[in-house]
Design a protein around this nucleic acid. Structure first.
Lengths: 222, 222
DNA sequence: GGCGGTTGTGTCCAAGTTGTGACAATAGAA
DNA sequence: TTCTATTGTCACAACTTGGACACAACCGCC
C-alpha cells in the first residue's frame, strides 16, 4: 500500500485528508509542523509528501529544501498563498505540484496518485522506458531495442527496480532488500550473477547497466 | 535539449508559448489539432506534451488516451475548462498536470520542467555544486565545467567531503577521519596523492582545490 | 641565500573488487 | 516422477584502485 506523509498544522484539515485518502487505499502519516515532518522522514520512506507552507517551527519551503538534499520523493504543496512568486519558489526548490486551499479532495487525491504513478516512472499505461529498454508492468514483458526479451522472474524484478530508480546508484544491499526481500540470507554476489544474466539478455542495451566500483549498479539512459 | 510538443488550436497562444519555451532551452514542435499531434507523435519522441482540450478533429482527451496506449510521456493539459469533472477525467486518462487559461508563462514553464525532471527520475535531489564543479550524490556522478568526469570511489568521497565543507580548511587528519575512516593506518601523504589525482580529473576546475601550507586543503568557489 | 620542512610527481605493486564459467541445489512444469 | 529452467555459490581470471616510496619542487623563516 502506498504511504503518504501529510504535513499540516490545522488538525481538522489533516484528519479530513487522511480519512479520505485512507478510504482510497493510501496510508497516511500525519505531522503538525516541519520539524515533526523531518523526524518522521528520518525513519520512514514515503511515496509522496503533502506539505502545507505556513506552519510553525519550520515552514513548507524549509522542509522541501531539507528533503531535497537527499531524496527525490514527490512533494505537493498545500497552500493558501496562490501568488505566482511563491509558486515559482516552490518549483525552484524542487516541488512537483501545488494545490491552493480550499481544494477538492477528489482533485487532491487525483494529483497525488498521478505523482506517485509518475515517480514510479509509469504513465497510466504501465509502461516504463529507459533508453532502448521498455518494460510493461502490466504484462511483465520486456523489450530491448524493439525486440522482445525473455526475462526470468528475478531478472524482471531486478530490472524493474533499476528502472524505478534510474540514474541512481543502488548498492547490492539495497537491491537485495528491495528485490530479494529483507530475509534473504546469501551474499551480495548473487546480485552480480543476476546482473550478468540481465546484461546478456538485454543484448546491446545491457550496456545501460553500469557498474559503479565499490558501490553498486546504476541504470543509465545512454 | 529537451523536446516538447505543443498541441493548441489558437495560433497566437501557440507561438507565444513556443517563443517563451525556446528562450528557456526547450525545443518545441507545434500541432494545431489532435490528429496533427498524433502524426507528429508517430515519428518523434518528446519529453513532454502540452495539450489543449477543446480542439477540432480530435480533442485533448482523445489524444491523451491514444498516447497512453503506447507511451508514458508526461502530459500537461492546457484548458479553459476548470471544472472538477473535466479535471478528474484528465487524471483518470493518465495526464500529469493541468493549467487553466489564462496562465502565467513562468508557471507553465516551471510545471513543464518539473514534469520532465520527474519523468527522468532524477529530480532536483542530491545536487551539490561549487564553482564549476557539480556533484550528484544519488548517481555519484561528477561534472566539471559541464563535462562529465570519471572519479574513483575515494576521489568521489574526498571531493564530497570538500564540497560539504567548502571554503574551510580541512587538515589531513580531518580528511583521513571523514573519508578514509577512523581506522586508517597509513600516513597523511595518502591524502596528497588523492588530491593530486582529483585535481587532474577535474581539469581546469582542479584549481578550486587550494593547498593551505602547513594546514591542509580548502575548496573554493573560484 | 640557505636550510629544514612541506608538498607535488612518477612509478610500482599488493589488496580488493568485479566479471566469468562451471556446477549443484532448488523450484516449477509436464 | 522426470525434465527443465532458474538461481545461488564457488573458484579463478581480469581489472581497478590507491597507498608507499623516492625524488623533485616549493615554501617560509632565519
Amino acid at each position: 500500500m502506498e504511504h503518504v506523509l501529510i504535513v499540516e498544522d490545522e488538525p481538522r484539515l489533516r484528519s479530513i485528508v487522511r480519512d479520505y485518502f485512507s478510504a482510497h487505499a493510501l496510508e497516511c502519516d500525519l505531522a503538525r509542523d516541519g520539524e515533526e515532518a523531518l523526524d518522521l522522514l528520518r525513519d520512514h520512506d514515503y511515496d509522496a509528501i503533502l506539505l502545507d507552507i505556513l506552519m510553525p517551527n519550520l515552514d513548507g519551503f524549509g522542509v522541501c529544501r531539507a528533503v531535497r538534499e537527499t531524496s527525490a520523493v514527490p512533494i505537493l504543496f498545500l497552500t493558501a498563498l496562490a501568488n505566482e512568486e511563491d509558486l515559482l519558489r516552490g518549483y525552484a526548490l524542487g516541488c512537483d505540484d501545488y494545490v491552493t486551499k480550499p481544494f477538492s479532495l477528489a482533485v487532491l487525491l487525483a494529483k497525488t496518485q498521478a505523482l506517485i504513478r509518475r515517480s514510479r516512472g509509469t504513465g497510466e499505461a504501465g509502461l516504463l522506458s529507459c533508453g532502448a529498454i521498455t518494460l510493461n508492468t502490466r504484462s511483465r514483458l520486456c523489450a530491448s531495442g524493439g525486440q522482445d526479451v525473455k526475462l526470468s522472474p528475478r531478472e524482471y524484478d531486478l530490472l524493474l527496480c533499476l528502472m524505478r530508480n534510474r540514474g541512481q546508484v543502488l548498492t547490492r544491499e539495497q537491491l537485495l532488500d528491495k528485490v530479494w526481500g529483507l530475509d534473504f540470507e546469501g551474499d551480495g554476489r548473487a546480485v552480480d550473477a543476476r546482473i550478468r544474466s540481465l546484461r546478456a539478455a538485454l543484448g546491446k542495451a545491457g550496456g545501460q547497466i553500469k557498474t559503479v566500483f565499490k558501490s553498486g549498479y546504476r541504470l543509465e539512459e545512454v
